[in-house]
Design a binder for these strands. Sequence first.
DNA 1: ATTGACCTTATAGTAGCTTTATAGTTTTAA
DNA 2: TTAAAACTATAAAGCTACTATAAGGTCAAT
Lengths: 135, 135
Amino acid sequence: MRIGQLAQLVGVETQTIRFYEQQGLLPPPDRQDNGYRVYTEKHGERLAFIRRCRILGLSLAEIHELQSYQDDPHQPCTAVNALLDDHISHVRSQITALQALEKQLVSLRASCNDDREVEACGVLAGISEGNMHQQ
Amino acid sequence: MRIGQLAQLVGVETQTIRFYEQQGLLPPPDRQDNGYRVYTEKHGERLAFIRRCRILGLSLAEIHELQSYQDDPHQPCTAVNALLDDHISHVRSQITALQALEKQLVSLRASCNDDREVEACGVLAGISEGNMHQQ
DNA sequence: ATTGACCTTATAGTAGCTTTATAGTTTTAA
DNA sequence: TTAAAACTATAAAGCTACTATAAGGTCAAT
Ligand SMILES: [Zn+2]
Ligand SMILES: [Zn+2]
Ligand SMILES: [Zn+2]
Ligand SMILES: [Zn+2]
């Protein structure tokens, strides 16, 4: 299986596959005589794993860590679970921050309407005055 | 006022100030004979405005746009308000996406506990099987 | 023989800074 | 007075996770 077929199979671009190889996330495949990469099913599974991790918002470093756990299957799950717990709390704090942000933005938006001129813009005034509760 | 004082006043690093100047967000200040930048109060206000926009999650491009509106104070507020509305909807869709993500992650996490070995890890199995509802 | 589809590497661009390197200037302390 | 510290300057690289571009080699079909 060549790189284009693998890319189509998993739904990524060929450059992305080479990038993962370069980053050490995907093991370097064998090459044909002409230098073309030849992939196996294992590569496909590994690549699909990476993509699903990315969809879950895991960083490449976190994926790398997960892979290192997979390579040593008799250790306890503690580290894997801790990684996921950490990631969940990352996501939760992002949500909290964005919700606070939304609130600020909505109240800022409410301080103006389209009938005004920029000179008297409540939004710009609101930002300039800086009566923002930080964080 | 030199760059270090301005930085301390507004609470940013000096490099950040130079970066904003380079990006056209902060007007180039006068220079002393030795080449040191000299800032006025106006610069301070402008920089504070930028920082408050950043805290609100606005991109540098959006801030640039806002600044261009400020320079032409007799146009209607429509564009400013539209920019903010767009940004609010960006933030809202991010929140929605992250909430869906959190749900997935929590259910994935529930499929394992610390008593298992990596070999039988519910988390890793869950990712590998790929029964994920995308998006 | 040449088009087109595929493959290769290397390099640069994206956002918003931060870090590093290298060098010149001013202030402070011994 | 001089030597160290703190400050300033520019330029370039690093960060994340790719994406895009350039310039070229390979292969099948026309
Ligand atoms: Zn994470
Ligand atoms: Zn307005
Ligand atoms: Zn926005
Ligand atoms: Zn587990």
